[in-house]
């Protein structure tokens, strides 16, 4: 047995050494090396990490290579970005506003590399955030999701039989509250136009219902049930993966429908398709993809990208299976309102 072990050990060691020395030649010259420094949650978070990475993979080509590094905690951000700098990435994309500070620090030290941050304007601010300036080589990718959420709010109000609709958020981050704010404004607009009084639970224009994090499934389920008991028959959860709890609850209780956010839930969470009224979509992947192609064409600028209804950076999904339950009048009005938001006739605040 002892000899067998020695032989195996020697073989393994020899294999490794041979392996390293016969290292394959570097792959054909890649012009653009796009590197994504992800937020915590992993590449398969079914949320913004996953969408951003999918967007990058889509533009991968013979001249564009893409890679990512996951973060176990926020302490990893700076190290991951430095790794990308050492590995000579052409563009480094930080995913999530939490990584913004680390990206800006690295960008100022490496003016030759292009950077982008998903979900943050990526401004260089002083200690108390009273003065903020853009950085020459950093592009912020943000989304005016309130515009699409406004439409969703209008649809919800038009669909509701009880006259009560609801929303809740994962945590009170601006990237979450803008959904809730737009949703409420959409309902309010419906009330003004139709002289109705549909109520919104979970957001009063300033404060609202928050789970506290994006992982507490128990509280998400309890919140959804509480909304139903209060009479709400449309719920829009803005809490990443927790939306599944609300949709699942809608399926079992049959008392409400769910509005999905970030992606088209009909595609990304197809098992809930029977209760999905619509989805407020955020074009993370497209934004990431387009900034990478810009870099590869030498057209990178630090001008912030803002996804709007106008540039289709945010939109609502079709009603899919529930199309018959949304009055066609409402569907037409939503199209008209969308045009008004694009033209600036209707202004939606974040």
């Amino acid at each position: 047995m002892k000899n067998t072990f020695r032989v195996v050990a020697a073989l393994a060691a020899a294999t490794l050494i041979v392996g390293v020395t016969t290292m394959p030649a570097a792959t054909a010259a890649v012009k653009t090396k796009a590197c994504l420094a992800l937020d915590t949650g992993g590449v398969d978070d079914k949320s913004f990490n996953a969408s951003s990475w999918a967007g990058a993979v889509k533009v991968k080509s013979s001249s564009i290579s893409v890679e990512y590094l996951p973060a176990a905690s926020s302490a990893d951000f700076a190290g991951n970005i430095k790794k990308f700098v050492d590995n000579k990435c052409t563009i480094i994309i930080g995913v999530g506003f939490a990584i913004s500070g680390a990206i800006i620090t690295s960008a100022k030290a490496n003016p030759g590399i292009s950077y982008a941050v998903v979900d943050d304007g990526a401004y260089d601010c002083n200690a108390d955030y009273s003065v903020c300036n853009p950085v020459a080589n950093v592009k912020g990718l943000t989304f005016a999701t309130q515009e699409a959420a406004f439409l969703a709010g209008y649809v919800a109000a038009g669909y509701s039989k009880t006259g009560i609709v609801a929303t809740y958020g994962g945590a009170p981050y601006p990237t979450v509250t803008c959904f809730m704010s737009g949703y409420k404004q959409g309902v309010d607009y419906f009330n003004t136009v139709k002289k109705k009084s549909v109520k919104v639970l979970g957001w009063d224009g300033k404060n609202g219902e928050f789970i506290g994090d994006f992982g507490n499934t128990t509280k998400a389920l309890a919140t959804s049930k509480a909304f139903e008991q209060a009479g709400a028959d449309v719920i829009m959860p803005v809490a990443g993966g927790l939306a599944a709890q609300t949709a699942q609850n809608s399926m079992t209780s049959k008392k409400s429908v769910t509005i999905w956010v970030d992606t088209d839930g009909y595609v990304s969470a197809n098992q809930y398709k029977s209760v999905l009224l619509t989805s407020v979509m955020k074009g993370l992947g497209e934004a990431v993809g387009s900034v990478i192609t810009d870099v590869s064409k030498g057209k990178f600028t630090n001008t912030s990208y803002v996804g709007t209804l106008a540039n289709k950076g945010t939109k609502i999904a079709t009603y899919h299976d529930l199309a018959k339950k949304v009055p066609s009048k409402i569907q037409n009005e939503v199209r008209a309102i969308a045009a008004d938001i694009v033209s600036g006739k209707i202004k939606v605040k974040p």
């Binding site: 390293v20 290292m23 050492d86």
Partner: peptide, 25 residues
């Protein structure tokens, strides 16, 4: 076998470079 060895070998080489000494830096 060749690509198996080179994949594993390079992975461990990178592990070493990432933990102790990286001549590329």
């Amino acid at each position: 076998l060749k690509i198996f060895a080179s994949t594993v070998g390079n992975a461990y080489l990178a592990l070493f470079q990432g933990a102790i000494y990286d001549p590329n830096l």
